[in-house]
Structures are given as structure tokens and as C-alpha cells.
Design a binder for these strands. Structure first.
Length: 852
RNA sequence: GCCCGCUUGGCGGAACCGGUAGACGCAAGGGACUUAAAAUCCCUGGCCCCAUGGGCGUGCGGGUUCGAAUCCCGCAGCGGGCACCA
């Protein structure tokens, strides 16, 4: 008998699907739709295992939904702008455009070899002017709607990538791509007003029920809503007042100092005439953002000599410090310190000998003796030492004090957010040009829409230093669209997260030349029903897209708040790591198993077996998907990806696991091949009634598999779905023979159910079973409820909660019958040992527990 | 430091609402076929014991319940997110 030839079979079916345009879809409002999307790839060169997992997961969903009768949109494209293309230009002298399109060609071929059910006609790359011209047009609309502004601000500067980073792109004080410590610079930047939607972005999270709670929580934390009060303190001997934000206005009577950020305007003003202060400020700003500096930095302050009046007791004067722990970007850049009820303020007060006055008394504490030691008291309690607030609890005191501040005209309730506006200016070449012109006379002028797109210049000199567009000899020179006099183009390009903030909408209508997309098309397809990708975008891409969708809505492009109805975040692919004696990393292929449990390289030197870690090039523990697909076929890779771990957990790549998947494909092939000659023809109807023995058992196994696999696939329990199909396979092998129509039904069910996971093998077997219609065009199966029902069931019997026996009894039998049968069971009688039961708990069709 | 999640055989993992713990697989051991190997097939398998039976078992210690991997309280370990956020 021939063996399964995965290479021939996969090529054959991929060709047939393409020729028959099996996976091409049209907007068709008469049919129910389902939009499955995987986070589109950056064309870095070659696909990695994370891509394979991502697209396999998406393809399972797409194929299932398609078989279930949905009109399924499942597209693929390229997140094609980005810095690595410029890196390649510097290192190899290749144009970023050529490098990018070359990578796309290579990666497209790799992805196509996976046999995904994708409508490839919809493919696009974001670096194509046909795409980014619409982005420029939408940007201009957002400018008009007041959702965009330009201002000078402190920015995160990545010294390696030579560009600005958004706050979301700084991880632990380092650039998210380069890993270099981020510096602070002051630059004029374009911003999207994401903060204008902060309230809605937060509130709507509660309605995203098909998102992982973890992602919603991370976005909630990132948005960082704080309720409190803005309070104005009178400065002694100065006309202006000092404003602070506090979430604990109730502790105002416990205030003992004020503190300003080192770059607060008042600090800057005072430092101008105070060299000592100026030196202190310089030292604070130098400390900067590196991890180590932050962790070891102690609370330090500089007394400015200024004094503030506590607005609730103007006779109390508070010293004004400049302190290194106050952030200029948060709140007002100034605080009042209440050491008794804030740990950081307490540390500061102890260091500078400031009073510590408790104003919240813990429940049951004695007001005469209660004192603050080394730890501030943060809990609830009763206000004291606070005049008109005395006796109130904390929430009541907050509202009471805010009312009083408002009456005095020196404060009001306020909500502060952690999230900042999204800075999108990047000083790079390989990005979407920002369609603006700077004119000496007219200021900043938008490029008129009829002059779009603003194309990138082709002839560019990329050296890795500075902004290539800025250095280009002619590109930036352009007449002012308003007055016609010589002016200068904006030379910054967009953050590439702008492109990925709306690509899901473009897939609905990817070739539209006049608009980003047709309203009708997005009204039909959006939101994305199932989005799948990595958790690393929990607050980057996923937050930006939610913002951008709202901004597009308010500019009239679509009628939608949330782009992604369902989100699934997959785990990482991991692999064992190996190191030689010197600590250098070794590839898995360089390591041979050693009988002593250790391992050695080909040249016989000992090897340190390291931890299982995320696949990464630096640790040499990657496996190239193309090599696996070449050797075993795409179906093997797909099956392995799905069967070993639940998709949201990390998956350890092992050769043994791949072999296991490969063996199963061949086993299923053999089982079908061995039996298909003897089967009745296609369309034979399997008997439902009058079945008994092995035939009844097989029919039940088949229908139980149909029900359980469907359920498992719908809940993303793909590892279980694989296990359940394997169970059916085992049942088919155990079937001694008999009714051939039942056997055909079982074999067809196994093939049908495995198809979303291993589509090539399934099509091949489907054809060999005699079908002429594609399996991909064949509807999903529905289990016969009559075969799911059992008339007699096995019921475990416990004595005092310990399982002692089991009885077989009619399903739905009443408690009296079950109880009698249980007590009559010999094993139960033995366990009772003559004692009479005090109580018998019968849970119908579940269990019996005899209590003595 | 704060917030979240996880902890089940040698390993990956099943166990839906509290109801037979360990499905399915990997690795292992034994056997069959073969001159041999590969491939394939069959058997065994949580741990322990006076073994047709019994005891103990889901990180550890308590609790609730007829019954707990599942619920509650405390602790430990691992992973992740945020972090001078006022």
C-alpha cells in the first residue's frame, strides 16, 4: 500500500483551491458573515513559528465557520513600513522598498505553503501608496475635526533607532525594538488626541466580553483613571497660585509640604535666579529613566524657600520643595505631601524632618495614642485632626472637602488619566509621509486632498544617521498650498502603528481607489468577529485601533465603535536552549543526546542543557517553519501546533511531538486506505434504529465525536478537538467490521472533523472515499441527538464520599430505584459492613453517595 | 511595592455548573512481525501496601460540603503586567 505523500498532496490541493477560487469571498448582505483576522505580519524576511501558530489558529476558525455556512472573510496582508527596512539599507545598500517587497514575495510563498483558506485577491501592503494615500486623507479629516495637534514636548528618544517613541513603545525605560535606554528630548511632534476618548475607551472595555480579561485589565491600567481634586494653594508673597492634583483631598489637614517637579514652570522660573536650585534640577533630569537609576534613587528634595498657605487653614504655612520623584507629565506636576497617609511622602518627610500629622484614624484605634511609624496608613477610617471633617469616613470626607474647596474658589473635583496623547511623528524615511507643509507666512498648512498622496522620494540616501527625508536635497521644498511661496514639507513620517490601526477595515474593500473603504462593505463585514494575535499588543496596536475606529467614526467613515468583537491571544512558541562550556549558545541540531542525561556536540564536548525559552535568534533555539513543512508537510506542522497545548498557553516545540503528529496523519491515511475498497458507495445511509453491540457503539462514538469536536472547536479548545478525533480514530480501528455504511459514516466524520486542522490530508482522503465535491465546500456535520442519548448509564456509587462500585441503570431512573440498586450492590454491602446508611444522596444520572 | 494569572503522573495536558481524577498524546518498559533494522501492531503504566482487597494522591496548611483539582481563608513557588501616577 502506498504511503501518504504529503508533498504531492499539499501541492495538488493548494492548486485546486486556487483554480476553483474556493476561498474567494464577496460582500453579500443576504448571507451571515464571519470575519476572521490574524494580526498581519511585518515582512522581516522569513516567517517564524509564531506566524505558523497564529495563522493555523485563524484557519481552523475560518474553515469551521465556512463549513457552518457563514460567508467568511479571511484575508492576509503586510504591515510593510518600518525601521528594519532602513537597517537593511544601511547594512546592505539595498533600497528599503526593494528589501520590503522582496521579503513579501518570500514570506507570501511560505505562508501559501501552509494551505490557509485565505482570499489572496485582497492582499495589500501598507507601504503601497494605494494604501497610505487614504491614511493621509483620513489624517487631514482628523486634523479638521480637532483630533490632531502639533506641539513641542518632551519625547522619548531612542538613540539607536534615531527616532521618537510613543509612551506605549517604551518598555522598562528602553525602546521596544532597539532595547536601548530612552533619552528625553524636546521636539515638535504631531499628536493624535487619544485622551479625548479616554472615558469611552475605558467604559467600553466592560462590553468587550469576548476579549481576555487580562488584556482588558492591562488597558484599564494603561488608561489609568484617577478620581480626585485639583487644589490651588496661595503662594506667600507671589501673585500666582500653585495647583496640585490629589486623590486624597480628604487628607488636606495632614499636609506638611509641597513638592514641584524638576521641570515644573515654577521650578524653571526660580532656578533662573538660583544656581543651587539649577544644579539640583540638572542633576534630577540627568538621572533620567534607566531602570537601575530609578530603583536606587532616593527621595531627594530642594527647599525653594517659598511658602504656601493650606487653603483650609491659611495660617498653616507649607514649605515648597522641588523633588526628584514628582513627575511633570502627571496631574499638574506638583503635589501636596501628606506623610501620614502616603508612603512616598512619609519617606520624604522623614528625610527632611517634616511633621507627620495623622488625620485618618483606623477603626478602633485610640486618637490620643495613634501615631505613624515607618509605614503610612493607607486604609479607611474616621477623620480626625481635621476640624469640619472630623468623624467622617474617607469617602464622605472626600466629597465634603471638595464641596468646601469649591465654595472657597480654590479647588474642584477632577479626574486625571495616566494615558497621554499618542505622538506619531517619526524621524524616519520608511513610513507614511505626514501630509503637512510648513510655511513661513501661513504657518502649518495641510496638503490639499487633491494633491494626495504625498509620495516618498525614490532616490534617497540612507546612512542610519538623522532623518533621510530631512537630508534629501529637493523633496522637502514645495510651494505653500495656501500662498504659493516657497515652503517646507513636513519631513516626519507616521508611526507605523497608524497603518495597523485601520488595515482591518481596508480588507473589506481593499482596492477602492477613491476612499479608504466603502461604507456598505465595512457595515457588512465589521467588526472583526475573531481577531487572533500575540499578547504583546495588549496596549499598543489594540488600543490604537480602538481609538482610530472611533476617530474614523467621528469623521464619518464608518458607524462603529469597536473594531474587534472577539479577541484571542495565543501563547509563545518555546524550545529548549543549549550552551557549550564557554556559555555560547548552540542550535538544537548541534546537540546529540548523551546516555548520562547530558548532551554533547558532534565534536564530543559536553553541553549545558538550558531552560525552555521563547524561540529567539539570539539563543539559537529557533526552528525554521519552511524546513518542517518541507520535511513533513504543512498538515504535520499545523496538527502539532494544535494538539500539544491549549492555544493560549506557551507551546514547547519538540521533535518528538512533530513525529507524533506525522505518525497520526499516516495512521489516519492507512485506516482509510485499508477500508475504503470494501465500503458501500458514497451516499449510503447509515442505519439509526435497531442498532446493537459494536455497531451501536461505533454509531454512538461517531455522533459523540461530531458533537464534542464541534463544541471544542467553537471554544478554542483545539488540543481537545484533536484528542477527540483521535478517540474516534481509535474506535474505528477497534470496530470489528459489520455494517459498512456505519463504517463509512465514521470514517467520513473523522475526515470531516479533522479538516479545519489538516485540510490537505482531509481533502485527499475525502476524494479517496469517493467524493467528487470538495470537502472545503461540504457543510459541517450535525450530530443525531438520538445517538447522543444513552438509555442505560453507568453510575458510580460512593460510600462516605469514596468510590466503591458502579451500577448500570436506566437513564433518568428515580431516586428510589437508584438507591435500592446501589444498596443491593455487593461491593457497597461489603463497604457498609453491616452498618445501615444514615442517608443516601442520589444525584440523578450523576452519582450515588451512601453516608453512614 | 501594587495588580493579575498559574501550580494535576517522567512530560504536554483532560476533567463543562462541586459528582468515577489522569481523556488524548509524548517519552519509557515488555512483547509480536523481520535474517536485521526502519515502519507497524499488541500489552503495562499516579504512588504505596499484608494485592480477588485496601491506603494515600491535583504545590503546602486549614475550612465549607453527603462529596472539593474545582468554592472560601492563610502560606509558598512560578509566570505576566504596571511601577516614584500624587
Amino acid at each position: 500500500m502506498s504511503r501518504y505523500n504529503s508533498r504531492a498532496s499539499e501541492a495538488k490541493w493548494q492548486r485546486i483551491w486556487e483554480e476553483r477560487r474556493t476561498f474567494e469571498v464577496r460582500t453579500d448582505p443576504s448571507r451571515p458573515k464571519y470575519y476572521v483576522l490574524e494580526m498581519f505580519p511585518y515582512p522581516s524576511g522569513r516567517i517564524h513559528m509564531g506566524h505558523v501558530r497564529n495563522y493555523t489558529l485563524g484557519d481552523v476558525v475560518a474553515r469551521l465557520k465556512r463549513a457552518q455556512g457563514y460567508n467568511v472573510l479571511h484575508p492576509m496582508g503586510w504591515d510593510a513600513f518600518g525601521l528594519p527596512a532602513e537597517g537593511a539599507a544601511v547594512r546592505r545598500g539595498v533600497h528599503p522598498r526593494d528589501w520590503t517587497w522582496g521579503n513579501i514575495a518570500e514570506m507570501r510563498a511560505q505562508i501559501r505553503s501552509m494551505g490557509l483558506s485565505i482570499d489572496w485577491r485582497r492582499e495589500f501592503a501598507t507601504c503601497d501608496p494605494a494604501y497610505y494615500r487614504h491614511e493621509q486623507a483620513m489624517f487631514l479629516d482628523m486634523v479638521e475635526r480637532g483630533l490632531v495637534y502639533r506641539r513641542e514636548s518632551w519625547v522619548n528618544w531612542d538613540p539607536v533607532d534615531q527616532t521618537v517613541l510613543a509612551n506605549e513603545q517604551v518598555i522598562d525605560g528602553r525602546g521596544w525594538r532597539s532595547g536601548a535606554p530612552v533619552e528625553r528630548r524636546k521636539l515638535a511632534q504631531w499628536f493624535f488626541k487619544i485622551t479625548a476618548y479616554a472615558d469611552d475607551l475605558l467604559a467600553a472595555l466592560d462590553r468587550l466580553e469576548r476579549w481576555p480579561e487580562k488584556v482588558r485589565l492591562m488597558q484599564r491600567n494603561w488608561l489609568g483613571r484617577s478620581e480626585g481634586a485639583r487644589i490651588a494653594f496661595e503662594l506667600v508673597g507671589r501673585p500666582n497660585r500653585l495647583e496640585v492634583f490629589s486623590t486624597r483631598p480628604d487628607t488636606l489637614f495632614g499636609a506638611s509640604f509641597m513638592a514641584l517637579a524638576p521641570d515644573h514652570p515654577l521650578t524653571t522660573e526660580l532656578a533662573a535666579s538660583d544656581p543651587c536650585l539649577a544644579a539640583f534640577v540638572a542633576e534630577c533630569l540627568r538621572g533620567g529613566t534607566s531602570e537601575a537609576a530609578l530603583e536606587t534613587m532616593e527621595k531627594r528634595g530642594f527647599d525653594t524657600g517659598l511658602r504656601c498657605r493650606n487653603p483650609l487653614s491659611p495660617d498653616r504655612l507649607l514649605p515648597v520643595y522641588v523633588a526628584n520623584f514628582v513627575l511633570s507629565e502627571y496631574g499638574t506636576g506638583a503635589i501636596f505631601g501628606c506623610p501620614a497617609h502616603d508612603q512616598r511622602d512619609l519617606d520624604f518627610a522623614r528625610a527632611y524632618g517634616l511633621p507627620v500629622v495623622p488625620v485618618v484614624l483606623p477603626l478602633g484605634a485610640d486618637p490620643a495614642s495613634f501615631a505613624i511609624g515607618a509605614e503610612a496608613y493607607l486604609g479607611d477610617g474616621t477623620l480626625f485632626n481635621s476640624r469640619f471633617l472630623d468623624g467622617l469616613d474617607v469617602p464622605a470626607a472626600k466629597s465634603r472637602v471638595i464641596a468646601e474647596l469649591e465654595r472657597l474658589g480654590c479647588g474642584r473635583g477632577e479626574v486625571t488619566w495616566r494615558i497621554r496623547d499618542w505622538g506619531v511623528s517619526r524621524q524616519r524615511y520608511w513610513g507614511c509621509p505626514i501630509p503637512m507643509v510648513h510655511c513661513a507666512a501661513c504657518g502649518v498648512v495641510p496638503v490639499p486632498k487633491d494633491q494626495l498622496p504625498v509620495l516618498l522620494p525614490e532616490d534617497v540616501d540612507i546612512t542610519g544617521v538623522g532623518n533621510p527625508l530631512e537630508r534629501h536635497p529637493t523633496w522637502k521644498h514645495t510651494p505653500c498650498p495656501r500662498c504659493g511661496r516657497p515652503a517646507r514639507r513636513e519631513t516626519d513620517t507616521f508611526d507605523t502603528f497608524v497603518e495597523s490601526s485601520w488595515y482591518f477595515a481596508r480588507f473589506c474593500d481593499p482596492t477602492n481607489p477613491d476612499a479608504p473603504f466603502d461604507r456598505g462593505a465595512v457595515a457588512y463585514w465589521l467588526p472583526v468577529d475573531q481577531y487572533i494575535g500575540g499578547i504583546e499588543h495588549a496596549v499598543l496596536h489594540l488600543l490604537y485601533s480602538r481609538f482610530f475606529t472611533r476617530a474614523m467614526r467621528d469623521c464619518g467613515y464608518l458607524d462603529l465603535d469597536e473594531p474587534f468583537d472577539g479577541l484571542f491571544t495565543q501563547g509563545m512558541i518555546t524550545h529548549r536552549t543549549y550552551q557549550d562550556e564557554q556559555g555560547g549558545w548552540l542550535e538544537p541540531q548541534q546537540v546529540v543526546k548523551d546516555e548520562a542525561g547530558g548532551l554533547r556536540t558532534r565534536d564530543g564536548r559536553p553541553v549545558r542543557v538550558g531552560r525552555v525559552e521563547k524561540m529567539s535568534k539570539s539563543k539559537l533555539n529557533t526552528v525554521d517553519p519552511s524546513e518542517i513543512i518541507e520535511a513533513y508537510g504543512a498538515d504535520t506542522a499545523r496538527l502539532f501546533m494544535l494538539s500539544d497545548s491549549p492555544p493560549d498557553r506557551d507551546l514547547e516545540w519538540t521533535d518528538a511531538g512533530v513525529d507524533g503528529a506525522w505518525r497520526y496523519l499516516n495512521r489516519l491515511w492507512r485506516i482509510v486506505e485499508e477500508r475504503r475498497e470494501r465500503l458501500p458507495p458514497v451516499g449510503s445511509v447509515a442505519a439509526r434504529a435497531g442498532l446493537a453491540g459494536a455497531e451501536l457503539e461505533l454509531a454512538r462514538q461517531t455522533h459523540r465525536a461530531i458533537a464534542s469536536v464541534t463544541d471544542a472547536l467553537e471554544r478554542f479548545h483545539f488540543n481537545k478537538a484533536v484528542a477527540l478525533v483521535r478517540e474516534l480514530t481509535n474506535a474505528i480501528e477497534a470496530y470489528p467490521g459489520g455494517d459498512g455504511a456505519l463504517l463509512r459514516e465514521a470514517l467520513e466524520a473523522a475526515v470531516r472533523l479533522i479538516e479545519p486542522m489538516t485540510p490537505h490530508l482531509a481533502e485527499e482522503l475525502w476524494e479517496r472515499l469517493g467524493h467528487t465535491r470538495l470537502l472545503a465546500d461540504t457543510p459541517w456535520l450535525v450530530a443525531d441527538p438520538a445517538l447522543l442519548a444513552q438509555d442505560r448509564i453507568v453510575l458510580p456509587v460512593q460510600v462516605n464520599g469514596r468510590r466503591r462500585s458502579e451500577i448500570t441503570i436506566a437513564k433518568g431512573a428515580d431516586s428510589t430505584t437508584v438507591e435500592a440498586a446501589a444498596l443491593a450492590d455487593p461491593a457497597v454491602r461489603r463497604a457498609l459492613d453491616g452498618r445501615s446508611p444514615r442517608r443516601v444522596v442520589v444525584v440523578p444520572d450523576k452519582i450515588v453517595n451512601v453516608v453512614v
